[in-house]
């Protein structure tokens, strides 16, 4: 979005509105990577920048989610000994 604002100032408000409209249409279609591959750079430079920014956001989100899942997995690996604890509890009739 920062990129758009900067370029909006350069190209003028009219251009920025036009970009937003294009982006709204682009958002309704498939995933950003596919959209990016299908856009012609020479004709739709601003749209390419928008979609590139969108991809970056999605990649950041996926990375963070993967990190959370990985972290949860690593922390929960400490649960290996739960089996041992259960066996021990049953052995001494611990409720």
């Amino acid at each position: 979005m920062k990129i758009n604002m900067g370029l909006g100032a350069i190209f003028g408000a009219e251009k920025l509105t036009e970009t937003k409209d294009r982006k709204k249409t682009a958002k309704l279609s498939t995933n950003p990577k596919d959209k990016f591959d299908n856009v012609e750079f020479s004709n739709n430079f601003l749209e390419c920048l928008d979609i590139a920014e969108e991809i970056k956001e999605e990649v950041n989100q996926v990375t963070s989610e993967e990190k959370i899942i990985r972290l949860k997995g690593e922390i929960e690996s400490g649960q290996y000994v739960v089996d041992c604890a259960k066996l021990a509890a049953d052995m001494i009739n611990l409720a």
Binding site: I68, L71, K72, I75, E76, G78, Q79, V81, V82, A85, A88, A89, M91, I92, L94
Partner: peptide
């Protein structure tokens, strides 16, 4: 020994649970 082990496991599980809630 098993009661001590049970206590240790409970304490560790509390920490793990707390981390998972934060995550």
């Amino acid at each position: 020994i098993i009661l001590n082990f049970h206590q240790t496991m409970e304490e560790n599980n509390k920490i793990i649970k707390s981390y998972n809630e934060h995550l």
